[in-house]
């Protein structure tokens, strides 16, 4: 076999095997440790807490915030789960009380705004590229 082709195949195989091994190990490590000893109620609590932001801190979700207001909100979540409310109903309750800002999800309108801004910003770049004779 040609020496150059052999070298290419060798490096390709080596790099690919290492890559696939990393991907496989990372993927399986996640599956192995997802079965913690947690009741369905507690799992639901964590799920809801991770979808609601702290009204004071801005960026942090309830599950990570320890401000008094968040502790109270966590208590309310636990009580509402006990009374049989669904996750959506609980989140809606907080959304009504504190507004959309509390939801850890970006408004669809923001996406449209972002894409428009992005497309508009391409125009000056294209003009520069044209001036630089990169495009004709």
């Amino acid at each position: 076999m040609n020496r150059v082709i052999f070298k290419i195949i060798l490096i390709f195989s080596f790099v690919s095997i290492i890559g696939i091994s990393i991907l496989y190990t990372a993927n399986s490590s996640q599956k192995n440790i997802k079965d913690g000893r947690v009741s369905i109620e507690i799992k639901r609590t964590y799920e809801i807490e991770s979808q609601i932001r702290c009204p004071s801190c801005g960026g942090i979700t309830l599950d990570l915030c320890e401000l008094p207001i968040c502790r109270e909100m966590k208590k309310v979540i636990a009580t509402q789960i006990e009374t049989g409310l669904s996750n959506k109903e609980i989140i809606n309750f907080f959304q009504l009380r504190y507004g959309d800002i509390i939801i850890n999800r970006t408004n669809k309108f923001v996406y449209i705004f972002f894409i428009s801004f992005f497309i508009l910003s391409i125009v000056p770049i294209s003009l520069f590229m044209k001036k630089n004779k990169l495009i004709k």
């Binding site: 932001r53 801005g58 800002i101 923001v110 972002f114």
Partner: peptide, 17 residues
Amino acid sequence: ITFEMLKDQKIILSPDF
């Protein structure tokens, strides 16, 4: 900042965004 100025509404961009 633009959103707050134009719509007087605070938005936070989530990690998903």
